[in-house]
């Protein structure tokens, strides 16, 4: 239906979610340094003010912290915190959309459950 599949979230939100993903997956382990705002903005070709805004979201949520003159580090306990947050958002982000789409395609609840079982089996 939609021709433009671009993410509707602002870039700074996408950036902070991207960093969250990297923390959850272990690419940025707890108590290790993450790339600087400058490195991030150069790498993704985004305005440094945008990158800073994304980073500050994570600082405000205490997922990362700044060490003056050194750089930014992943807080200890960040993974657990983020996983909990994502679990809460799981219903809103995935289940609701799935059910909407299933209704549109006349897929029954039983069929969805079967598919989920198949998904876990693979």
């Amino acid at each position: 239906m939609l021709v433009n599949f671009e993410d509707e979230k602002p870039i700074y939100v996408q950036l902070s979610e991207g960093i969250e993903d990297a923390i959850i997956s272990g690419a940025f382990p707890e108590e290790t340094q993450i790339p600087s705002t400058t490195e991030i903005s150069i790498n993704y070709k985004i305005n440094p003010a945008t990158a800073l805004k994304g980073i500050n979201l994570l600082v405000d949520n205490e997922v990362i912290y700044k060490k003056r003159g050194v750089g930014m580090f992943v807080s200890s306990g960040a993974v657990e915190k983020l996983v909990e947050k994502r679990q809460v958002a799981f219903f809103e982000n995935f289940i609701k959309n799935m059910v909407d789409e299933a209704k549109k395609l006349n897929i029954s609840k039983t069929d969805i459950v079967k598919m989920i079982e198949r998904g876990y089996g693979e």
């Binding site: 705002t37 400058t38 903005s41 150069i42 790498n43 070709k45 985004i46 305005n47 440094p48």
Partner: peptide, 8 residues
């Protein structure tokens, strides 16, 4: 990339 590096 150089533009952003330079600006930063």
């Amino acid at each position: 990339k150089e533009l952003i590096a330079n600006y930063s």
